[in-house]
């Protein structure tokens, strides 16, 4: 055993070391992270929730949104979106940076820390960020009286779960990206924006023509949102659908972690 560096400890806690260093880096930008975590969904909530809400109420009351005010209807969706975007930010960029831009994963890997441990570390750190953003936003929703404290607290965990599932998948995908020229642009335009718009965020998915609805079915945002509406304000949801939503997210989480582990291991071996 050499000078106090315990290989045993590193083997056991490697992922925690990685997570810790990621969280340290994040905390440098905590000001900006908070502004984004709060500002982004807040703007949507006010601009669309209230602005469009007025038009919706004038035109069709609450009949189109399952009997709740429009702003209540979109609140769980925005909460879910916060979770998913936060998870994406903290997986896509660190993984790009670690493998490509600054290549520090290779440096970490030259210690006894393994690829899957690095992946897990990044993932855990992302969860911290997600938990933070979701919690802050939920407090805000409660403070504005959009959701109720006692009845909606489970939806915080639902949003986090959705964020975890999406983050795991993104990490697996990005770990395989070799050319980043336009990956991020395309990801934003062809994946993130469509998911945001076609996941029943601002209106029930069933308002869409049937041929556009499948985008929602495969979207983690839709599944998270539907669960969020059920646990957030008690929107009706059958037991079957409840199970399907959970299973979908769980499958995504497992697949994401599996792919990440394989890709991290292989890419670091090269």
């Amino acid at each position: 055993m050499n000078s106090g560096v315990s290989v045993e400890n590193i083997r056991r806690n490697g992922a925690l070391y990685v997570a810790e260093s990621r969280i340290r880096q994040m905390s440098k930008w905590k000001g900006i992270i908070t502004v984004v975590a709060v500002g982004n969904p807040l703007f949507y909530l006010v601009a669309i929730g209230i602005g469009i809400g007025i038009l919706v109420t004038e035109n069709s009351g609450t009949s189109g949104t399952g009997g709740v005010e429009y702003i209540v209807f979109i609140a769980p969706a925005l909460l879910a979106n916060t979770a998913l975007l936060g998870a994406m930010d903290e997986t896509v960029f660190p993984v790009m940076e670690g493998f490509k831009w600054r290549k520090m994963f290779y440096a970490i890997n030259s210690t006894p820390i393994t690829g899957p441990q690095i992946a897990l570390g990044v993932f855990l750190a992302a969860l911290v960020r997600v938990a933070f953003s979701v919690f802050v936003y939920w407090i805000l929703l409660v403070a504005f009286g959009v959701l109720s404290l006692q009845d909606s607290w489970i939806s915080v965990f639902v949003a986090m779960y959705g964020g975890a599932a999406f983050g795991a998948l993104m990490m697996g995908i990005v770990a395989g990206v070799k050319k980043d020229d336009y990956f991020l642009t395309v990801l934003g335009r062809l994946v993130i924006t469509p998911l945001f718009l076609f996941s029943g965020t601002f209106f029930p998915l069933t308002n869409m023509p049937i041929y556009l609805q499948p985008i929602g079915w495969i979207s983690p945002l839709w599944h998270t949102t539907e669960l969020g509406r059920y646990f957030g304000y008690g929107q009706e949801l059958s037991g079957t659908m409840l199970t399907i939503h959970f299973l979908f997210l769980t499958a995504m989480l497992i697949v994401g972690i599996k792919i990440s582990n394989i890709r991290f291991t292989n890419r670091l071996l090269k």
Binding site: V56, N59, G64, T65, L197, F202, F203, M208
Partner: peptide
């Protein structure tokens, strides 16, 4: 995409 989403989806509500 915004046009499709908001046009179809919101149109029904608004």
């Amino acid at each position: 995409l915004y046009l499709l989403a908001f046009g179809y989806g919101m149109g029904a509500l608004i």
